[in-house]
Amino acid sequence: MNPVEILREQFNSHVAVREKRPGILQLVVPLFHEDGDMMDIFLDLPKKGEIDVPESVRISDHGLTMMRLSYSFDIDTPNKARIFRRILAENDVTEEAGELFVEATAETLYATLLQFSQAVSKICNLRYFKRELLSSLFEERLAEFIQDSLKRFHPTQDVFPIPDRDDLAVDWQLSPNGLPLYLFAIRDVNRARLATISCLEFQRKDLKFKSIAVHEDLDKLPRKDLNRLTNACDKQFTSLDEFQGLAISYLKREAAEI
């Protein structure tokens, strides 16, 4: 059977096709991105133009999803790549040289097309996943590391150094040498500003402490906020990976100071 006829039947006629190139049909289906552009979905036809069971036809985006994503988001960190790969795996989509595709048989063409469109939509919205998933991953991973690897430095979570100031919280307190070491997890500019304000207020109150900031991604902070935090905070780690690599030796040196 002709895959286009199969789809028309399965889509209850709400599908049209346009030949994009010989052997490549662009599907005109009511599947849109949020900006109103129709999703770029193509059928790569078998050479003979028909599919017989158990042959398959490829549903592909010909690289246009990654192109759209790249307008505002690049998959340029291991975390982003991990989330991207997870979306592909969860939706049974393959990626090769920037092209996303799935193989469908005659029976599964409609369902596979819808599944593919869902994957395309999720990938185009990857930056929102980043905001939610990566933020929680960052703090989770930081907590896991502190609890597993820094036990000897007596970590305590959610500390309020000034009793009547519950607006000035410290994410973690460590005690390498008896002097409290306040650790701030900096995942965004708001947290950076709060850490700055907190450190300055603690200094104003003449509290005895040291402070460290662990950044999720230092490069994402506006320069002025980074400057203010640098001036207020005693030590910074530019990323969680750097903190994981250097924390123990740093804290040992702190412990040896006494």
């Binding site: 049209a16 005109v28 009511p30 109103g36 552009d37 129709m38 770029d40």
Partner: peptide, 15 residues
Amino acid sequence: LRFNGQHGGERSHPH
């Protein structure tokens, strides 16, 4: 702004 070529339909002109 984003200028796009003749890539395919969009909501007001799907075909």
